[in-house]
């Protein structure tokens, strides 16, 4: 009985840590990834602000960012993390590599959502004398909104997966618990409970994402 309360508290705290890591890193990933995605869309040729130079650079950065395995990225940016949050271990410190890993992902997600908008709609706005900024704010963002929401949902779910590895730098969270208790100490019950919570979490996030996207989708 005692064990049960102890473990449920453990899992509860782990859940909060996971949500904290994922939530905060997602927030920063979107803050930076969204403008990045917009920029890579509008600098394409035939778009509203064509610029091969910027497009190439951003495209390359995103590709490199996405091809580095998370565990390596986490270790590689330790000095940067320490500079930014004053420490390289702990839950807060884990947020930095998570956000960094998610930025290029969000960039691509934004790009693909915005490329789905029919060029004709953008052309119509141009024919009305809209400025590039007006096109971004009044056409690209609202028209891509359902796709953006689904993309951000996907990012959140990926971040939950990545956050399991954050245990390696003392980040805590559900994944960490599963590894420490389940794998290293053979507490199978704990591991199963953790996995169940993770599955639930992913399901709930996907469900909410779908609901919000559907609400804004009038296509």
């Amino acid at each position: 009985m005692n064990n049960l309360t102890q473990y449920s508290e453990l899992i509860w705290n782990g859940t909060l840590e996971t949500l904290y890591m994922v939530g905060v890193s997602l927030f920063f990933a979107v803050i930076i990834g969204l403008p990045l995605g917009i920029l890579i869309v509008i600098t394409r040729k035939d778009h509203i602000a064509p610029c091969q130079f910027i497009y190439r650079i951003l495209d390359t950065i995103i590709n490199i960012g996405r091809s580095i395995p998370f565990i390596i990225l986490m270790v590689a940016i330790i000095p940067f993390t320490r500079k930014l949050v004053g420490s390289s271990i702990g839950t807060t410190a884990a947020i930095v590599p998570l956000a960094v890993a998610a930025i290029p992902f969000v960039g691509r997600v934004v790009e693909s959502a915005m490329l789905e908008i029919s060029p004709g709609v953008i052309e119509a706005a141009r024919s009305m004398g809209a400025t590039p900024l007006q096109i971004i704010m009044k056409v690209l963002l609202p028209e891509a909104l359902p796709g953006l929401i689904l993309g951000i949902t996907l990012t959140a779910i990926n971040l939950i997966g990545y956050s399991a590895m954050a245990g390696a730098i003392g980040g805590g969270g559900l994944g960490d618990i599963a590894i420490r208790y389940g794998y290293q100490r053979f507490r199978v019950t704990v591991m199963i409970a953790t996995v169940v919570v993770l599955v639930l979490l992913v399901d709930i996030i996907q469900w909410i994402g779908n609901k919000i996207a559907a609400y804004y989708d009038h296509r």
Binding site: S118, G120, V121, A124, S127, M128, V139, L145, H218, R219
Partner: peptide
């Protein structure tokens, strides 16, 4: 100038949102 030139299209090009 464009504000004084309206345009309509084969595929309408309305904002779905």
């Amino acid at each position: 100038r464009r504000k004084k030139i309206g345009m309509i299209f084969q595929h309408f090009n309305l904002l779905s949102s």
